[in-house]
Nucleic acid binder design. Structure first.
Length: 938
RNA sequence: GCCCGGGUGGCGGAAUUGGUAGACGCAUCGGACUCAAAAUCCGACGGUAGCGAUACUGUGCGGGUUCGAGUCCCGCCCCGGGUACCA
């Protein structure tokens, strides 16, 4: 291995080697002892809050991909300190939740134990890389002193309703006063459907009835609803935890089940969550993901009269096609299905509904194109034509969106078209194509919002866009409905039937869900030896007989993983406060996160929930900003780079990659740690696994070359590279630099240890600039113009590139600078001292060591960033590329301050121009000063 | 299907507002030092032709705008991510 080579070389050379192990050890210890990166609670300096998405401490420890974002944010943190900011850069652990619990179960240990062990391992790995975290602010979401405030915020949500007129959360007792006085009518509140009641009605209600009514308004509420039940995990899951009908964690099947659950009324904030995205400095793609998840669509609600006098409400985005409605479809789960099914159709409909309800989420999604449904036997009356419209049920209509019923326009909606075609229903065309085509639609629906309306009474001749407006006007004028907005976003399922989460501070007093008083928080998670899922849809806490408060039973569900992570960034501002989730002064000083770095996997989960919680706190004046994360940068994923060996089938012989096609072979993953530049260390391979001890090899050019594939980094693929190993072999500074050098931060890229020696070599070259033979040597001589130019080119470049998070080009610039200074044999303080400061955010250990040798007593972390002086970059001449018809032919060195006309004259007078003209005429000369000359020949 | 990214040497990537494509690094090859190896240093390194100066060609494909296109416009192909009966 290269590390051994370096070690060997160290003993051979007599001069001062770059001994990264000693240097890094020394500074790790110093920073810890001196608390170098402790953020001041109050300061005259401007604040800067740099946050990483905190990890859940998994049993596998950190691999080399995890620190990528942390290195980037650490560079920014250190850079901002150099710029004079008071920087808050904390780290902690997302310790509650499913992953931690699954890991505990698989190892047979208690999650409290595994979480502690894993966190400690993470801390040591993180400290090894030299991050400038303020470790005194470390938090863990499973710490009772932390989740006490998670519970407290939950109670805030439980004790709130949303005023749609004031557009903010308000205390629930204010709603009770309104109910008491005037009943439910005229209150502008976001709530579930219910029948209106008067003030007198309210006064006569029982406690239970009142509680149930308030549940329809609370921001944290209980409800019976269809939820994602995952049998294998023994819990329900939120929508963002389910992918393709399988649990995101573990890939287990998920079924739809009606259960009583806690929910968060995030839908009340849909509009604000959507609008406020505009003011955030996030990537467009991330904002777009949130917009799509929120899914706002504009249209109309329309009431269709039923024969029994009731009305059926539907939501449509295409009211312009209302004359094309030939049938209605209800979701199988809709309450209307039962009510509207006639005796004659009863058997068929019941059979269908039962079948549809028992389909798994996965079946529903994989068989999207299969058309199923049943006729209820009832009809509705078309509000404009008076026609009888048959009512069907079909599972392509979702119960949870809109009203769970649609007006079907088969000619202009692909799903309705398929349904009509399958059941032989009419498909009348009401929108002509853009080319005026009004022929019947036989193959597919015409969904484009383009063309003119036909066969539609008062809408005839209008363009689609105008017809939508006109149709809504008419619907409103006739009292048939109204313009309406609809959101795809659903309320967040907040219950988990698991052990390892925050207990709900809720107890059931005579069956009425009641808040545990604030003074009794934290409501501690009870110690349990048997914390495994029960296998029934209830939490392990239900096994306890003494899980009570004040003699009443406590809620047995626990909160989901995203509870603790929805506000942790606030706790860092004041992590040890025992009176409040964070002190008001601290909140006012730190305000919000200036830079948040993390992966896109949290685009719609964590980032949406956090924004929601933050807005509720903002409504109560508990936080000073309405958004928590001003700027957000997504780092790409580091993929694994797997190596393969090829075993000749039925033998113990392995053939090198280039020769494998001459044999029948099986490709096997081999540990990337015993492969260097794709060459296998065959002795290490024999020692790797007992079954390979007798292995024989067919080599090419005396080497065994491995195959390569880019895959996910995972243990089973033997492509995991541990940062500890890289730090041991090359040092933390090399690791930091190399991770940045790999490519643009936001891009996904494979980890390949091969190139790391380049960055290590760079650090040694840099180290040698400050040393001569075996002694540190930096002179006080005045720098030359060339040396100053080299330095200030770097200062300018680093300033620009850090600003745009282009750290890979920063590293290149350092390399160029060091190469040039090496050629210049520069050892002058005037140049080398600023260079050390510039480098310190990237390679902090090395920079500190040099800084100390330069005679400074304080940490380089609080030095001042060198100022850029453009005067040093002024050039007296410019080497013009001269091109003819766009092809560069020769270079001409001309004074830099020459005007365009002078340049033109000089070039035309150049003898080389004559040669390249090839006798043709000069039609035009383009001169861009200090860039290019192009001569157009005719 | 829809919405976002992206496609540049053997490899990772650079080219920030249209102005010398391939910076920087890895790998490879050649040389110096060495008994030898490692380390270090020097040099070559997109493709084709040529001893060579050099010429032609070249940023996924096809067209266009421009004095000039990796960069802008139109139409495709491929890869990655998100989302999916959302009416």
């Amino acid at each position: 291995m290269p590390a051994n080579a370096y070690l060997r070389s160290k003993f051979r050379h007599s001069f001062m080697e770059y001994n990264f192990r000693a240097i890094e050890d020394k500074w790790r210890r110093r920073w810890e002892e001196d608390k170098t990166f402790k953020a001041a609670d109050t300061s005259d300096k401007p604040k800067f809050y740099v946050l990483d998405m905190f990890p859940y401490p998994s049993g596998a420890g950190l691999h080399v991909g995890h620190p990528l974002g942390y290195i980037a944010s650490d560079i920014i943190s250190r850079y901002k300190r150099l710029q004079g900011f008071n920087v808050l850069h904390p780290m902690g652990f997302d310790a509650f939740g499913l992953p931690a619990e699954q890991y505990a179960i698989s190892t047979g240990k208690h999650p409290a134990v595994t979480t502690k062990e894993n966190s400690e391992r993470y801390i040591s790995q993180l400290k090894n890389i030299g991050f400038s975290f303020d470790w005194d602010r470390m938090i863990s979401t499973s710490d009772p002193e932390y989740y006490r405030w998670t519970q407290w915020i939950f109670l805030k949500l439980f004790g709130s309703w949303y005023d749609t007129e004031l557009q903010q959360a308000r205390p629930i007792d204010e709603l009770e006063v309104l109910f008491e006085n005037d009943g439910s009518e005229g209150i502008s509140a976001f709530h579930d459907e219910h029948e209106t009641f008067s003030g007198e009605d309210w006064q006569q209600m029982h406690e239970t009835q009142r509680s149930e009514m308030l549940m329809k308004y609370r921001l944290a509420y209980q409800s019976h609803a269809y939820v994602n039940w995952c049998e294998a995990l023994g819990t329900v899951l939120a929508n963002d935890e389910v992918k393709d009908g399988l649990s995101e964690r573990g890939g287990h099947p998920v079924e739809r089940r009606r259960m009583r659950q806690w929910f968060l009324r995030i839908t009340a904030y849909a509009e604000r969550l959507l609008n406020d995205l505009n003011e955030l400095d996030w990537t467009d793609s991330l904002k777009e993901m949130q917009r799509n998840w929120i899914g706002k669509s504009t249209g109309a609600s329309v009431h269709f009269a039923l024969e029994n006098g009731e009305t059926l409400e539907v939501f449509t985005t295409r009211p312009d096609t209302i004359f094309g409605v030939t049938f209605m479809v209800l979701a199988p789960e809709s309450e209307w299905v039962q009510k509207l099914t006639t005796d004659a159709q009863k058997e068929e409909v019941e059979k269908y509904v039962n079948w549809a309800k028992n389909r798994s989420e996965r079946e529903r999604q994989t068989e999207v194109k299969t058309v199923t449904g049943a006729f209820t036997g009832s009809y509705t009356i078309h509000p404009f034509t008076g026609n009888k419209i048959p009512i069907w049920t079909g599972d392509y209509v979702l119960a949870g969106y809109g009203t769970g019923a649609v007006m079907a326009v088969p000619a202009h909606d692909a799903r309705d078209f398929r349904f009509a075609k399958h059941f032989g229903l009419e498909i009348p065309r009401v929108i002509a194509g853009a080319d005026g085509d009004s022929s019947p639609l036989t193959d597919e629906a015409y969904e484009a919002k383009d063309g003119k309306v036909i066969h539609s009474d008062f809408l005839d001749g209008l363009d689609v866009k105008d017809a939508i407006t006109r149709a809504v006007e008419e619907i409103e004028a006739r009292g048939l409905g109204a313009r309406r907005e609809n959101f795809r976003l659903r309320d967040a399922n907040f219950s988990r039937q698991r052990y390892w989460g925050e207990p709900f501070p809720i107890y059931y007093r005579n069956g009425v869900p009641t808040a545990v008083p604030e003074e009794s928080l934290p409501l501690q998670l009870p110690e349990m030896d048997d914390f495994k899922p029960t296998g029934r849809p209830e939490s392990p806490l239900a096994k306890l007989t003494d899980w009570t408060y004040d003699g009443y039973p406590l809620e047995t569900d626990t909160m989901p993983g995203f509870a603790g992570s929805s506000w942790y960034f606030l706790r860092y501002m004041d992590p040890h406060n025992s009176n409040r989730f964070a002190d008001n002064e601290a909140l006012k000083y730190w305000k919000d996160v200036d830079l948040y770095v993390g992966g896109t996997e949290h685009a719609v989960g964590h980032l949406l929930y956090s924004r929601f919680w933050h807005k509720v706190l903002f409504d109560y004046g508990l936080v000073p900003t309405n958004e928590p994360f001003r700027k957000l940068v997504n780092q790409g994923m580091i993929q694994g780079r797997s190596n393969f060996v090829y075993r000749i089938n039925g033998t113990d012989t392995f053939v090198s990659h280039g020769l494998k096609d001459q044999h029948e072979t099986t490709a096997l993953h081999v540990d990337v740690n015993i492969v260097s530049n794709d060459e296998l260390d065959t002795e290490a391979f024999k020692a790797w696994r007992p079954e390979y001890a007798q292995a024989e090899f067919i080599l090419e050019d005396g080497k065994y070359i491995c195959g390569v594939e880019i895959e996910k980094m995972s243990k089973s693929k033997h492509n995991v590279v541990n940062p500890d190993k890289v730090v041991e072999d090359f040092g933390a500074d090399t690791l930091r630099l190399y991770e940045m050098f790999l490519g643009p931060l936001e891009q996904s890229k494979p980890w390949n240890t091969n190139g790391i020696e380049g960055t290590h070599r760079f650090l040694r070259k840099l180290w040698n600039l400050y040393h001569n033979g075996d002694s540190f040597q930096v002179t006080e001589e005045e720098a030359t113009p060339a040396e100053r130019k080299t330095l200030h080119t770097l200062i300018k470049k680093i300033g620009e590139d850090v600003e745009r998070f282009s750290f890979n080009t920063c590293v290149s610039s350092f390399m160029i600078c060091v190469n040039e200074l090496g050629e210049q044999k520069c050892s002058k303080r005037e140049i080398l001292e600023p260079l050390a400061v510039l480098l310190s955010p990237f390679a902090p250990h090395l920079a500190e060591e040099i800084w100390q040798k330069l005679g400074h007593e304080n940490s380089i972390s609080y030095a001042a960033l060198p100022a850029f002086n453009p005067a040093f970059l002024v050039e007296s001449s410019f080497n013009y590329p001269v091109s003819f018809n766009g092809k560069t032919r020769y270079q001409a060195e001309l004074p830099a301050d020459m005007s365009a006309a002078e340049v033109e004259a000089a070039i035309l007078a150049d003898e080389r121009t004559e040669r390249w003209k090839e006798g043709k005429e000069v039609r035009k000369v383009i001169v861009v000063p200090k860039r290019i000359v192009n001569i157009v020949l005719g």
